[in-house]
Design a protein around this nucleic acid. Structure first.
Lengths: 338, 338
DNA sequence: CTGAAAGCGCTAACAG
DNA sequence: CTGTTAGCGCTTTCAG
């Protein structure tokens, strides 16, 4: 049963008594083939258990139904949701996503990109606008559609879909200032390569400054369970700077940890201390109270990016680059309005 | 800068004045090449921004550095962790994982498998032991190493790495019975295709029966935020059958929802009601109290599976199938021992 | 150490 | 509607 040599079109051709070319046409639903030969071929292919060789097919046709998706991580809930958006759209085409993970390292990104491009995919969806010169050069030279996602604060190589994280930071700062909070702490990840968190932080401080407010204290972490880290960091920052009245977290998981911690301590949220996170992760629905957060439009980003690639894939003529900025929405939950 | 036609070996050959064959050797570090020509080639390739065409390379060499990984979902935390184990091992080889998602549907699995096999990967890692006849036939006929993961209760096509979910269910039942719990409820997903949850349930009821205990009530859900669903289901099952003294959840997320709910209600856990989940998700570290659970050895499963594929990839001779059963470990947390 | 020739398995482009 | 002829871009194999 376990054949040594995989079957080829020729095997199907011989088994069905139809030329290789016609077999190929049947198997791809291309061109007109009489019903009788079509059936003969299909029967033979099924009987033999023939699986086409896309390597050969792609080489001959100079078309590859693969879309490279390059993202920094799969372990927080953000990129899986982007992936869902991408799959949702690509599932209606014959395109297939292929995922590469960079762990937020530019070197790894370069490597993954090179590897991916060597398969000559029909498009690239890649997180972020910050890439090494080599990476940008590769993308430009590839001649295929490139969609940079998540962020629009910068200059894309080609197309781009995302939100403005700088603006997201500004919006949250505005909302916080409006509630009258004055002593604000920032808690985030110790990741110099997380440009989007950095941009949010920049927008955030910028707008606070306009209201005459300066960040009173900061705390960073890396690794470990985000929920537990959120607790620890919250405890640490408040014992160091007890008069803080608002904590802005760079993601919802650490924010949720902080929220749980404060509730246990009996701190009145949001009257004594307000809280906000970022991402709008559904995962947390069901916690005792709802953290204020901001939806990053992840699903929609995935969808739009995939649509751009799909459109170019089926288009005859090359299409123009697109820049799509989505609107993040604040969800106040129970921890912002006092 | 954006060339229409991608570069070929020939371009590098011409730019460097070295034969295509030798260029190929340099770029793959194969065979002996003099340092001077090597440098010439490397310089030319870099200068041009040449990216090799793996499609052509794979066709010619009949070797593909891809490993197909076929899993049901990416949205709960279990498969991402398996993926980490796989990557960890493959990162030390030149093999690359390519992921396909089946959404727990046999039809989709068949489709994804077919698609993957058409790229002639060097191995397949696939979740579960239950597959359609067509899927099993394809895997057998492929002639490449197949590793079925997560579960060992059944007959693998080739190799297999996992835990016995039946035994996991039995172990948990044993632990619960030993604590003297008698009125036991089961809460899980409404997924007929989740064979592993089913096997745990079977082992669970079987062992309870030996202790003269029968499941007193059950509750199922699908979709939505697991944490929130866990709360709802817990409320529902306890209002229907108030004398339950133990709740066994088919995953940690719904268990955590239940735990939060009961704490808020002021129910004494684990004295009045004991709880246990399944999976050992790290995500939940940081909740007010720690749910009893059982580690599913996800990281290790990923590692071992990748090792089997990698070993066969580099081996000259074909290797024997392996069956590896890992040991799940109960972690009692705060919700089992009263 | 380097090159020339012959495909890998399939499909585009033409003929019938 | 069906078949024939050339490659796709690379690597294997075999000569220098």
């Amino acid at each position: 049963m376990t054949s040594k040599r995989p079957l080829t079109l020729r095997d199907v051709s011989e088994a069905s008594g139809v030329s290789e070319m016609t077999v190929s046409r049947v198997l791809r639903n291309r061109g007109d083939v009489s019903t009788s030969t079509r059936e003969k071929v299909l029967a033979a292919a099924k009987e033999l258990g023939y699986v086409p060789n896309k390597i050969a097919g792609s080489l001959a046709s100079q078309r590859v139904n693969l879309v490279a998706v390059i993202i920094p991580s799969m372990s927080n809930m953000v990129f899986p949701e982007v992936m869902m958006g991408i799959s949702e759209v690509l599932d209606q085409t014959d395109l297939q996503p292929v995922v590469g993970i960079t762990h937020y390292k530019p070197g790894k990104e370069e490597q993954v990109l090179f590897e991916m491009l060597s398969w000559r995919p029909s498009g690239v969806i890649i997180a972020g606008l910050e890439h090494s010169d080599a990476s940008r050069a590769m993308m430009k030279a590839s001649g295929i559609p490139i969609v940079e996602i998540m962020d629009v604060d910068g200059t894309p190589v080609d197309s781009c879909v995302g939100i403005s994280h700088r603006r997201a930071g500004r919006m949250m700062a505005e909302a916080i200032a409006k509630e009258g909070y004055k002593r604000i702490g920032f808690l985030g990840t110790k990741m110099p390569m997380d440009h989007r968190a950095r941009k949010r932080f920049e927008g955030f401080t910028e707008t606070l400054a306009k209201h005459g407010i300066e960040i009173a204290d900061q705390e960073f972490y890396d690794g470990g369970s985000a929920l537990a880290k959120g607790r620890e960091m919250t405890e640490a920052i408040l014992s160091r700077t007890p008069d803080l009245d608002f904590l802005y977290y760079s993601n919802d998981m650490i924010g949720a940890g902080g929220l749980l911690h404060l509730r246990e301590k009996g701190v009145d949220v949001p009257s004594d201390v307000g809280l906000a996170g970022f991402n709008g992760v559904e995962l947390l629905q069901g916690l005792p109270s709802k953290l204020a957060t901001m939806d990053a439009c992840r699903l929609e980003i995935g969808r739009k990016a995939a649509e751009i690639i799909a459109a170019r894939y089926s288009a005859e003529a090359p299409q123009d680059p697109q820049i799509i900025e989505l609107e993040p929405i604040i969800s106040a939950g129970d921890t912002l309005h006092r």
